[in-house]
Design a protein around this nucleic acid. Structure first.
Lengths: 253, 253
DNA sequence: CCATCTTTGTGCACGCGTTCACAAAGACAT
DNA sequence: ATGTCTTTGTGAACGCGTGCACAAAGATGG
C-alpha cells in the first residue's frame, strides 16, 4: 500500500531512522526463531540472511540502537531480542481495539500474531446491534455506542479499523477523540487525523494492483502494440530484469 | 509489515519509479470516486488532497505517464481513470488463487476490493482435506494436491499466500514452479523466490509493532530515566507532535 | 605476549524520491 | 488579437537510505 506523506519529511524518531524501525520487527522475528533453537550468537551475515536484508544494512541498523555486538563473534541472541523488544515497546502490554467485526475484523481478532507480541485484543466493536454480545475469538462483540467508554476503561491507545470505507473516517474521529493515538487502517480510504496521531494503512487491493503492474510488464511486452493512447509499443522484452523496488504500500499517514 | 530488499537497487520499471507505481492505485481510487460523482475535471491540488499526497508529487507522478492534463484547467477524470487503469494492467482480468483458507484466507476470499479491480478469485486452496468441497465466499475449496493443475488450468499468475508461516515457503515454491510470478504473502516469513518473481508482503503484526514504537515514544519521554525497562508510565499528552515518517512495511521481495 | 583471523561499526559516495519554485501553456474575457 | 489568470509540467536542490569497503576491536591459538 502506498500513501503519501503530506507534511513532515520523515522525521527521525529519537535518532532511529524510520526505515530502521520498520525493519526491527523483522530482525526480532528472526532472532526469536534462533532463540527458540537455543542458538547463543549470530553474525550479522547470518541474521541478515534470515531476515532477508543486506548485512551492512543490518549492522548499521543495530548501530542506531547501540553497540550490542562483539567483533569477531557476532551478536548475543537473547540480549538482542531483549534490546529490540524494549526499543519497540513490546515489553509492555498494548491493549488494542478492533472496530468493524466483519470478515476481516473477525480474522484479525483470531490472528495469533497479535497476542504473541504483547498486543492484547481488549475489545471488539461493531455497529451492528445484531453482533452485540456474540463472541468472536472468545471475545464478546460490543456496540459502537460504547466505543468511548471502552477506550477509556481499557486505556487503549491503539485502534484497528476494519470497517467498510464509508464508516472509517467517522470511526477514526471517535477513536481519536476518545484518546487513541495510533491507528491501523484496513479500510480503503485516506484517513485524516490531527497531528500527533499515527496512522498506518494496509490496503490489500493496492498490493494486488502493484503486483498487476509488474505482472503486466513481465507478460505482454509485445502485445502492447494495440490501440494507441500509450507509447508502450514495440517493447522488446530484452533484458527484463524483473522489476521490484523498495516501495511501500503501507505507510504512516 | 516490513521487509528488506537484498539485491537489486529499486529498479525503475519502464521509466516509472516504483514510488509512483505504488501511488497510482491511490489516485485511481480517488478518481473513481470523482467519476461516480460525475465530476468532469480535477486540478492536481484537489486530487492530491483527496489522495492524501502533495500536489507537486502528484503532478510529477502523472508526468511519468505522459501529459494528460490541460494547463489552466486540470485533468480529465474519465481519461485519467482509463490511463491509470491501463498502466496498472487493470483493464484485463487477473485470475488469482488464495492458498490457505483459514480465518484470513476466508476473509480475503470475501473481500470485495479484489473483484472490483479486475482481480478474480479463480480458486481457493487448502491443505485440510476436511475443507475440500466446502464453499467459502461461494467458491468451493480445493485441495493442495491439485495446486499445479489449478494454476495451469486457470492461467493464474498471481497467488496469495495466507497459510501458517511454516507452510508458506513450500506453498510458494509450488506456486512458482507451477508458473505463478507474483505473490502476495500474508504469512509472517521471509520467502525466497527466483529472480523474475515478485513478492509483496503484508504483515499485520509488524504494522502494530511499528505503531507501538511510536506510541512508546509519545508516551514516556521523561520517564525514560528509570531502570531501562520501560517508560510507559505517566502519560502526559502534552504537545505530542507524534512521529511518523514514510517508511514501508510492505515491500517487494 | 604476539600474530592472525573474524566480524563489527562506520565514513563515504551514490542514487532515488520529494519538494520548491517557476516558466510555459492554454483557457477565457474583452 | 491581446492580456490576464489559472494550472500544468519540470529543472534543480536537498535529504534520506543504501551499500561498499575498510579500519578498529576483539577472540583465539601458539
Amino acid at each position: 500500500m502506498a500513501t503519501g506523506r503530506t507534511h513532515r519529511p520523515a522525521t527521525r524518531s529519537r535518532g532511529i531512522p524510520e526505515a530502521t524501525v520498520a525493519r526491527l520487527p523483522l530482525y526480532l522475528r528472526a532472532l526469536t526463531a534462533l532463540s527458540e533453537r537455543s542458538v547463543p550468537t549470530v553474525s550479522s551475515e547470518e541474521l541478515a540472511a534470515a531476515a532477508g536484508v543486506n548485512s551492512a544494512k543490518l549492522r548499521k541498523d543495530f548501530s542506531y540502537l547501540g553497540s550490542y555486538g562483539t567483533r569477531g563473534v557476532g551478536y548475543d541472541v537473547e540480549y538482542l531480542v531483549y534490546q529490540i523488544s524494549r526499543e519497540l515497546g513490546l515489553t509492555q502490554d498494548w491493549p488494542v481495539v478492533i472496530v468493524g467485526i466483519g470478515n476481516l475484523g473477525a480474522a484479525l481478532a483470531n490472528y495469533g500474531g497479535f497476542a504473541s507480541r504483547g498486543f492484547r485484543v481488549a475489545a471488539l466493536i461493531d455497529a451492528d446491534p445484531a453482533m452485540a454480545g456474540k463472541p468472536v475469538a472468545g471475545i464478546p462483540v460490543q456496540h459502537t455506542d460504547d466505543l468511548e467508554k471502552i477506550i477509556k476503561d481499557n486505556g487503549v491507545s491503539i485502534g484497528v479499523i476494519a470497517t467498510p470505507a464509508g464508516a472509517a473516517q467517522q470511526v477514526c474521529d471517535r477513536l481519536v477523540a476518545a484518546g487513541v493515538t495510533s491507528i491501523l487502517n484496513f479500510a480503503p480510504t485516506v484517513l485524516s487525523v490531527p497531528d500527533g496521531v499515527d496512522v498506518r494503512k494496509v490496503d490489500l487491493s493496492i498490493e494486488l494492483q502493484i503486483l498487476a503492474f509488474h505482472e503486466q510488464r513481465k507478460a505482454g511486452e509485445e502485445t502492447a502494440a494495440g490501440d494507441g493512447a500509450l507509447p508502450a509499443t514495440t517493447r522488446d522484452a530484452s533484458t527484463d530484469q524483473g522489476p521490484d523496488g523498495d516501495v511501500p504500500a503501507v505507510m504512516p499517514a
